[in-house]
Design a protein around this nucleic acid. Structure first.
Lengths: 223, 223
DNA sequence: GTTTCTAGACTGAACATTCAGTCAAACATG
DNA sequence: CATGTTTGACTGAATGTTCAGTCTAGAAAC
């Protein structure tokens, strides 16, 4: 069995082709995401995902060895996509304050048409799973670390330009991300006391107060 | 019948007695809580609970018509117990600031021997369940409302005595509870960046800053 | 002696995963 | 070109397990 170079990267091109293995994989990941969002992690059956992707349960297992592997990979996929889309938008913004507003905004609102928005329901499941499954726990850990680091370096940058006052950047990042999480829970669960807009404004008011920049209270991108 | 709710802590015995129906119920609720905390809501089997309570699955179903009923009731039970124990401790504290410190403290630490401490893992499951099950959702909703209201009226009281400055109490309650939730997630999941102690201090620093009272940075009850 | 409580055995459905192949494309050989 | 050969993608039909909830019947309480 001399398996030479196991076709790791498929024929990328042939744009529009019927569907390479990689496309199938992604199709399944997206199907899994839909189902997880609708029914929840625990209630997601392989059969549901298969149906959504227009194939059979057997094929799903063929691609992902186990159900857990499918679900964790799906979550990682969604999160990476969301994070990258967000940071890409941030890169174009001139001031640190604007980038911070983007961070807060992307946590609560979906503005662009191709942006599925933050899937907080996914996070609720992720947290619950992380509590008991170390595999999932490490995924969560890395995401959170990256997220805090993003805020942290943003604060440092703002301080260097003089936009922000001298607070402890690490402490701020931690508190800020916790605040985003906490408010997001209420928003995700549809608590009548917390609309997405109110969450956004409270966060921005907090950040402006702590970092000492002025913020006019408007929503981002078209207040 | 006429079960007047109450009976938060059961008679540890009436030594030797076989156990009334109510005691059996509670025994099962506690067993359920243990199992949920260990294995998670979704992975909790009726058989596990029965074994833990030293009885048969059939009996569990006899007392609680369905599994969901058992689990939701168990969560409600734990939360009420924790909340009541906390508010009872608060009642004895002289200043609003001290009561606030108690609130923050009870969110992260378990100090008294009979206090099981905040079971945040339970909350992670609760949130995930609430997303999809309206029954659970309304339980969560009520708990959160009560919690925010507790903070809210505490702030008002502090403002009347002049301890606290003039912030919007409702906004503060919302942000504060979100912050507690957000930090609690990290603490519950054992994030190395957030110890319970650090969470406590960051919260208190935040509160002191917002409400304008001075706080020496010590831990509560024995700085 | 009727009602309440309890447990062991059981049922039926749901579901993840396996298996034994089928199908078609790519590749080779003559 | 015609013919085998390999391989990856894919499927329908099992398989086996796990459980929630039921049934029956016995023990206790009243």
């Amino acid at each position: 069995m001399s398996e030479q170079a196991g076709a790791v990267v498929p024929q990328a091109g042939t744009a529009g082709a019927a569907g390479t293995a990689d496309q199938r994989r992604e199709q399944m990941l997206r199907a899994a995401l839909e189902v997880i969002t609708e029914r929840g992690y625990a209630e997601t059956r392989i059969a549901d995902v298969a149906e959504r992707a227009g194939t059979s349960p057997a094929l799903v297992i063929y691609y992902f060895k186990t159900k857990d592997q499918l679900l964790t990979e799906a979550i990682r996929y969604a999160e990476d996509y969301w994070y990258e889309a967000g940071t890409r938008r941030m890169a174009d913004l001139p001031t640190a304050a604007a980038r911070l507003a983007e961070i807060v905004s992307m946590s609560f609102l979906a503005e662009e048409p191709d942006d599925p928005g933050p899937d907080w329901l996914l996070w609720l499941d992720l947290w619950a799973q992380a509590a008991r499954h170390s595999e999932v726990a490490s995924v969560r850990q890395k995401f959170d670390e990256r997220w805090r680091e993003t805020i942290h370096s943003l604060v440092l940058a703002g301080q260097e330009t003089g936009e922000f006052g001298p607070v402890d950047a690490a402490d701020f990042a931690l508190v800020m991300s916790a605040l985003l999480d906490g408010l997001a829970i209420q928003v995700a669960l549809g608590d009548p006391a917390v609309s997405a807009r109110r969450a956004f404004q409270l966060c921005m008011r907090f950040a402006a107060g702590q970092l000492g920049f002025s913020w006019d209270g408007s929503s981002p991108a078209g207040g």
